[in-house]
């Protein structure tokens, strides 16, 4: 369900859907940036507040030009992998503020019969979206409309493939963790921030974390899972469990506590070491207000920033289990 939603449909969009999903755990609110914030359960002043964050935006395209024959030019919204675009099918979302109209389109490609050199990668500049709408395209579609390749989830062996698994797989892991915590005593006050705008530079997480009362934060995002031809010293293993972050910008104390929690419970986990910035919302959240000690918990993903992203559901489950145990105080950093 999470992967079939997007931010561009009114009134039902990914933020309102996520707010709805959080409602059973606590009061959830959406803000003007497209974030969803939720205070889970009871908050007591003697406990520290732990923020669980995952982002709900996804990579997309945006209409920049509409021509007389019904073809559109688009720009990138986030770092979409341009190599996937030729001959892909897309959905164009046009909003009048109240309702959304969807239009079908096909990204152009030049057939092999006419190619001179097909070894050069396609460039976004050379591609158009064919809407089949002719002159009417200008009436029905506006510059600024968003465009997605809407691959719905599909089971593939032990994996699930879909668009937007970056970062909906993590949104799901957080929701599964909250379910496990229902009726249980936790070591922290739990807050959830489902942030917007991560793919454009943590634009949602900055104000979102500012509005929270977090003392500590766990940032759930996807990380590179090993694909065919890559060696095991390069990237995380698909099916190897949550990847716990280690980085100069992260809290080593949180890293150690998460690792210990996983080890004590016998949960599979792996370590993801970064030399500096993590490329996630953690980079912004850690320096919000007077500073919020943070750590990343990542789900390995294949083919990041394509419409065929793939994750192992066991990794999602194990990430949820680790998160729930940590919240319960598996290895607590609450009272330092």
């Amino acid at each position: 369900m999470l992967c079939t939603q997007n931010a561009y449909t009114v009134p039902q969009n990914i933020a309102t859907v996520c707010a709805g999903l959080l409602e059973k755990f606590g009061k959830a609110e959406t803000d003007g940036c497209g974030n969803v914030l939720c205070k889970v359960g009871e908050h007591r002043p003697e406990r520290k507040t732990l923020l669980l964050n995952a982002h709900i935006d996804e990579i997309a395209m945006i209409v920049t030009h509409i021509d007389e024959s019904g073809f559109l030019k688009v720009g990138k919204c986030g770092g979409i992998d341009v190599r996937v675009l030729p001959a892909s099918r897309v959905t164009i979302f046009h909003n009048d503020g109240k309702t959304t109209s969807k239009y079908y389109g096909v990204l152009t490609s030049v057939p092999p019969h006419l190619q001179t050199d097909s070894s050069k990668a396609a460039k976004l500049d050379d591609l158009f979206i064919d809407t089949g709408l002719g002159k009417k395209a200008k009436e029905l579609i506006s510059q600024g409309d968003m465009v997605l390749i809407e691959n719905r989830p599909l089971e593939m062996g032990s994996l699930v493939t879909a668009k937007a698994l970056d970062d909906r797989a993590c949104v799901m892991a957080v929701l599964l963790a909250l379910e496990k915590l229902v009726g249980k005593e936790t070591a922290y006050n739990i807050e959830v921030l489902f942030s917007s705008g991560e793919e454009l530079g943590s634009r949602g997480a900055k104000p979102g974390a500012f509005k929270s009362n977090a003392d500590l934060a766990l940032i759930f995002d996807v990380t590179f899972g090993r694909v065919h031809g890559e060696s095991d010293d390069e990237y995380c293993a698909i099916g190897g469990g949550a990847a716990i972050g280690v980085s100069p910008v992260l809290s080593r104390e949180l890293t150690n506590a998460l690792t210990k929690t996983a080890e004590n419970a016998g949960l599979p986990y792996q370590t993801e070491v970064m030399g500096g910035g993590t490329g996630t919302d953690a980079d912004a959240i850690a320096v919000t207000k007077g500073g919020i000690p943070s750590c990343t918990v990542s789900i390995p993903i294949k083919y990041m920033h394509t419409p065929v992203e793939a994750v192992d559901m066991n990794d999602v489950e194990n990430t949820a289990a680790l998160t729930a145990l940590f919240c319960e105080g598996g290895d607590t950093v609450a009272n330092r």
Partner: peptide
Amino acid sequence: RVLYGKRVFVGKDRVPGVIAGTAV
């Protein structure tokens, strides 16, 4: 150029797959 990142079906039983390579 139309291959990478496309979904496919393999064989008579239409086993789902994706045309895969290194992340961008």
